[in-house]
């Protein structure tokens, strides 16, 4: 018996001659919050993008619920609906208002009818504190509001796993906390999440596991207590010294 939701085995990925992921191995259990840390260019985004197949790995396996997600026979769109993604640059649909952003994929992918989609959208907009903006144009929101809508949009698909790629890095400092609070709530509710972040206090408080990536390899992984207080790898120590002032 195991409750691994995600198993990543010997994954490699290159862009041309640049090997971005070099033999990546790790597992995520159900309900885990995994924080991926590491300096810019170490391959964190690429790894997330390989997990929801926005990029393709060159070799190795990624198993989600024990199913090989690179198997030709799986329905890619169904798989993606199950694994949500929140981007650094929000990527709200500019041609749709807030609730439209939350409804479109429910309608197109899950084939929910309008009422059902609307109800679900309002439920999750309320959860992220954006219900009063349901009718607002997505382009008129502040960054923090946009990111909360983007989270609600992902939640509307009832994902099993939610991937966050530096969700607060593009935000003005005063808005970071709003977004982190939403993420904390989701973590408490038991949603499985992988979060690329530079918010070390968030990682300390919420993560079950912290993974430190360095130049395409996992240099160290462990509980936040271990990683933040007595990391084994000198590279981890160096990185943390740089980032925590």
């Amino acid at each position: 018996m195991n409750d691994n939701v995600i198993k990543i085995q010997n994954c490699r990925k290159s862009f041309g001659n640049l090997e971005v992921l070099k033999d990546i191995n790790f597992t995520v259990n159900k309900g885990d919050v995994v924080c991926l840390i590491g300096s810019s260019g170490s391959g964190k985004s690429t790894l997330l993008r390989c997990i929801n197949r926005l990029e393709k790995i060159d070799s190795g396996n990624i198993l989600v619920d024990d199913i090989d997600i690179y198997d030709q026979s799986i329905d890619l769109n169904k798989y993606r609906a199950k694994v949500g993604m929140v981007f650094q640059s929000f990527n709200l649909f500019n041609n749709l208002n807030v609730i439209g952003n939350c409804m479109i994929a429910q309608h197109k992918v899950l084939k929910r009818n309008k009422q059902e989609a609307q109800k679900t959208a309002m439920f999750f907009l309320k959860k992220v504190g954006m219900e009063q903006f349901a009718k607002a144009a997505s382009t008129q929101l502040s960054g923090g509001q946009k990111q909360r809508v983007a989270i609600a949009r992902a939640l509307c698909m009832n994902p099993e796993i939610l991937l966050f790629d530096e969700p607060t890095s593009a935000l003005d400092p005063e808005m970071v906390q709003d977004v982190l609070d939403v993420m904390k709530t989701l973590a408490k509710e038991g949603l499985t999440m992988i979060v690329v972040t530079h918010e070390m206090s968030f990682a300390k408080e919420v993560a079950n596991k912290v993974v430190f990536m360095d130049k395409g390899i996992i240099a160290e992984e462990g509980s936040p207590q271990v990683i933040f207080t007595k990391p084994n790898n000198p590279r981890t120590q160096e990185f943390l010294k740089r980032i925590i002032r």
């Binding site: 929801n52 926005l54 993604m85 994929a105």
Partner: peptide
């Protein structure tokens, strides 16, 4: 990317 990540 956002649309594809939602399964569209």
């Amino acid at each position: 990317e956002a649309a594809r990540s939602l399964g569209m």
